[in-house]
């Protein structure tokens, strides 16, 4: 690992939602601050800066990561995914995002980006989750608006939709 000088800015390069990005950061700068204020990717939110609320959750090389507890310089060379990259294309919503809208899985929307990242990642490897599993997963996220039930409903529906579309794809490939 290269030695970094505390008082200097260091260049940081990584892929953000599939696109190369570059900026400079002091070693102490949090990834959340870097995404938001250096790169302008303000979809990732900061609710506590101590790793409990989950609002800042992003994917780093496929791992769910608290961007408030990660330094920007740590993700140099990594693949970073944030809420801005969830939709299949600009102006559309993913299956999960659309399910959130249908079930009122958000109110203020401040916790939502982190919640979406966790659910999106989880559903990609667990296509048939139970409600209890989803509640367990979401225990790493605090939402003060919804009481969680609409979030669970949205996730269950998204899982079902994704599973059935996968089945359809499978059958068309057969």
């Amino acid at each position: 690992m290269p030695r970094l000088t505390a008082t200097q800015r260091h260049s940081v390069r990584f892929r953000l939602n599939g696109h190369p990005v570059e900026g400079s950061a002091e070693p102490r700068m949090q990834l959340a601050d870097f995404l938001r204020h250096e790169l302008g990717a303000t979809g990732t939110h900061v609710g506590c800066e101590h790793g409990v609320c989950g609002a800042c959750t992003v994917l780093v090389d496929g791992m769910l990561t608290r961007s408030c507890l990660t330094l920007a310089v740590q993700v140099d060379g990594c693949d970073v995914r944030t809420v801005e990259g969830l939709a299949p294309e600009r102006g559309r919503l993913s299956v999960l995002q659309a399910a959130f809208r249908r079930h009122h899985g958000l109110q203020c929307g401040f916790c939502t980006p982190g919640v979406l990242m966790s659910l999106d990642r989880y559903l990609s490897t667990n296509p048939n989750p139970t409600e209890d599993q989803l509640r367990e997963l979401l225990s790493g996220h605090l939402c003060r608006c919804t009481g969680y039930t609409p979030i669970i409903r949205a996730a269950m529906e998204a899982a079902a939709t994704l599973a059935s579309s996968t089945r359809q794809e499978d059958s068309t490939h057969v």
Partner: peptide, 21 residues
Amino acid sequence: RSMERVEDAALLSGNGRFIDD
């Protein structure tokens, strides 16, 4: 009617406009 909210697409896409944004 429980229509879908006009607020939600932006909030779900990371395009909210909160004060720190």
